[in-house]
């Protein structure tokens, strides 16, 4: 067992050449489908996103945001389990995609759903806890996106940068709570994200304990 794991580790020291292009294709595809499908539904009366495309695409981009946040949280465990250290570089890419999908989610809400009715936007924010939580997560994610460049990492210093970027744990929890609060009674989907998050958190808690014990 550990022999084969080690063999896998040896083979996977280097990033495969196809990885980055493949990552970009896979990560961009949902955005292209989401934008094209919605445009077609709204302008050409198709039903790619069903009868209520605005609500559907709002949820669609929200779920992709959570998927990418969870993907960024998968990087460290994968590195540690498989020794794929080259993956570390892609965490930023995944994180920025998560931020991009969050922007699309917010645009679907503010631009298509509420249609920039500032009165309704402020009322939502003041009165709806799930909107407050979602918006808090969005605001917390802005500094992470802004400090994602090499220059910013240098300027902040590795340790401070690391601590700032631990905000992703808070953001991910807020995101899943936001999802739980937005559904009516069908909590299957948010529960799935919560379970994924629980596994990823458990992995970290266990590593942290092991390190303290050592």
């Amino acid at each position: 067992m550990s022999d084969s794991l080690n063999a896998m580790r040896r083979r996977s020291v280097l990033e495969p050449q196809w990885f980055v292009p493949a990552l970009f294709v896979v990560a961009l595809l949902p955005a292209v489908i989401g934008v094209a499908g919605t445009a077609s539904d709204l302008l050409a009366d198709t039903r790619f996103f069903g009868s209520n495309p605005i609500k559907a695409v709002e949820h669609y981009f929200g779920q992709w945001t959570l998927r990418f946040i969870l993907a960024t949280l998968c990087i460290t465990p994968t590195r540690q389990l498989l020794g794929w250290n080259w993956l570390a570089k892609q965490r930023r890419t995944l994180g920025l995609f998560a931020f991009g999908y969050l922007m699309l989610h917010w645009l679907a809400y503010a631009l298509l759903d509420v249609q920039l009715d500032w009165h309704d936007l402020t009322i939502d924010l003041a009165k709806r806890p799930y909107i407050m939580i979602g918006m808090a997560a969005l605001l917390l994610m802005v500094p992470l996106a802004v400090t994602s460049t090499k220059g910013m990492i240098r300027r902040l210093g590795g340790q401070r940068w690391n601590r700032l970027h631990q905000l992703i744990y808070v953001i991910s929890v807020l995101g899943v709570i936001h999802f739980f609060m937005a559904v009516k009674k069908d909590i299957g989907q948010p529960a799935l994200f919560a379970a994924g998050l629980a596994v990823l958190f458990a992995f970290r808690v266990q590593r942290w304990r092991a390190r303290r014990a050592a």
């Binding site: 009868s51 605005i54 759903d113 309704d120 937005a182």
Partner: peptide, 19 residues
């Protein structure tokens, strides 16, 4: 009278863009 989690003041008619 709002639903506790969202407003009931407007609605989106299926097939329409604006509420």
């Amino acid at each position: 009278v709002d639903h506790p989690r969202w407003s009931q003041a407007k609605e989106r008619r299926i097939g329409e863009f604006s509420r």
